[in-house]
Simulated scan of single mutants.
Amino acid sequence: MQGLQIFDASGQLTMTTDTLVGRYLGYFSTGVSNGSVADGRLSSGTPYYFAESVGLNTDTTILCQPIVSISDAGISWSFPDFQAGNGSLAPRVAINIFYGVH
């Protein structure tokens, strides 16, 4: 193999120029409204995100988390409206979104 190769102390190959290495770009909270965040840096690689639930109410069995989509221009989210067991809309829950590129 040609190119950069990195080995650990025991001589095991740990990284090459074929290895995907992620770059963390930032995070934000969605709040409980539909929205979007533009970040042009997402076009510098393949965008990714992961989400963390915040503000969960353990007394509520049905919660509405947003549906998230990501592109090379930004991240958007929207909350679907669905009924809780008592006929009212399920309460919306904010999530933290951590994102980057690899």
Rank of each mutant, 00 (worst) to 15 (best):
residue 75 I to R: 00
residue 87 G to N: 06
residue 46 T to I: 01
residue 30 T to I: 07
residue 12 Q to M: 13
residue 99 Y to E: 09
residue 22 G to Q: 01
residue 27 Y to V: 02
residue 21 V to G: 02
residue 101 V to G: 09
residue 41 R to I: 14
residue 52 E to W: 06
residue 82 F to K: 04
residue 58 T to R: 11
residue 69 S to L: 08
residue 3 G to N: 08
residue 66 P to Y: 05
residue 61 T to R: 11
residue 49 Y to H: 07
residue 53 S to Q: 07
residue 44 S to K: 11
residue 53 S to M: 01
residue 43 S to Y: 03
residue 56 L to N: 05
residue 82 F to V: 09
residue 94 A to I: 06
residue 64 C to I: 09
residue 67 I to G: 10
residue 63 L to Y: 11
residue 36 S to T: 06
residue 65 Q to I: 15
residue 87 G to S: 10
residue 2 Q to F: 09
residue 1 M to W: 08
residue 14 T to F: 01
residue 69 S to Q: 15
residue 56 L to G: 04
residue 2 Q to L: 14
residue 83 Q to F: 07
residue 41 R to V: 09
residue 27 Y to M: 09
residue 53 S to C: 07
residue 55 G to W: 01
residue 14 T to G: 12
residue 28 F to H: 08
residue 46 T to D: 01
residue 18 D to N: 12
residue 83 Q to W: 09
residue 88 S to P: 09
residue 97 I to R: 14
residue 90 A to C: 01
residue 66 P to C: 03
residue 93 V to M: 10
residue 60 T to M: 03
residue 1 M to F: 13
residue 72 D to G: 12
residue 58 T to A: 10
residue 26 G to C: 02
residue 76 S to N: 07
residue 47 P to R: 03
residue 45 G to T: 15
residue 32 V to L: 07
residue 14 T to S: 13
residue 77 W to S: 11
residue 39 D to N: 13
residue 72 D to S: 12
residue 93 V to R: 11
residue 101 V to N: 11
residue 99 Y to C: 07
residue 57 N to P: 03
residue 90 A to F: 06
residue 101 V to E: 08
residue 35 G to H: 02
residue 39 D to T: 09
residue 23 R to I: 13
residue 85 G to I: 06
residue 24 Y to Q: 04
residue 18 D to W: 10
residue 4 L to R: 02
residue 40 G to K: 09
residue 17 T to D: 13
residue 26 G to N: 00
residue 72 D to P: 05
residue 76 S to D: 12
residue 45 G to K: 01
residue 27 Y to A: 08
residue 26 G to H: 04
residue 99 Y to V: 00
residue 26 G to Y: 01
residue 16 T to R: 01
residue 37 V to Y: 07
residue 41 R to Q: 08
residue 11 G to N: 04
residue 23 R to E: 04
residue 64 C to Y: 01
residue 29 S to G: 02
residue 20 L to N: 15
residue 8 D to L: 10
residue 78 S to G: 12
residue 8 D to E: 04
residue 28 F to G: 00
residue 27 Y to L: 08
residue 28 F to M: 07
residue 50 F to Y: 15
residue 59 D to Y: 05
residue 5 Q to V: 07
residue 78 S to C: 14
residue 13 L to R: 03
residue 75 I to S: 10
residue 48 Y to P: 03
residue 44 S to L: 15
residue 79 F to R: 06
residue 93 V to F: 03
residue 34 N to K: 04
residue 91 P to T: 13
residue 71 S to C: 03
residue 39 D to L: 06
residue 97 I to M: 11
residue 25 L to I: 04
residue 10 S to E: 14
residue 30 T to G: 06
residue 96 N to S: 11
residue 52 E to Y: 00
residue 81 D to C: 07
residue 40 G to N: 15
residue 94 A to Q: 12
residue 100 G to P: 00
residue 79 F to A: 10
residue 21 V to T: 13
residue 34 N to V: 03
residue 84 A to I: 09
residue 36 S to H: 06
residue 99 Y to M: 12
residue 24 Y to P: 13
residue 51 A to T: 09
residue 16 T to N: 01
residue 101 V to Q: 05
residue 81 D to N: 14
residue 79 F to C: 04
residue 32 V to G: 12
residue 77 W to D: 14
residue 73 A to H: 03
residue 93 V to G: 03
residue 50 F to H: 15
residue 100 G to M: 05
residue 47 P to M: 04
residue 13 L to D: 13
residue 1 M to K: 14
residue 63 L to N: 00
residue 85 G to V: 10
residue 39 D to Q: 11
residue 14 T to P: 00
residue 97 I to P: 02
residue 61 T to E: 07
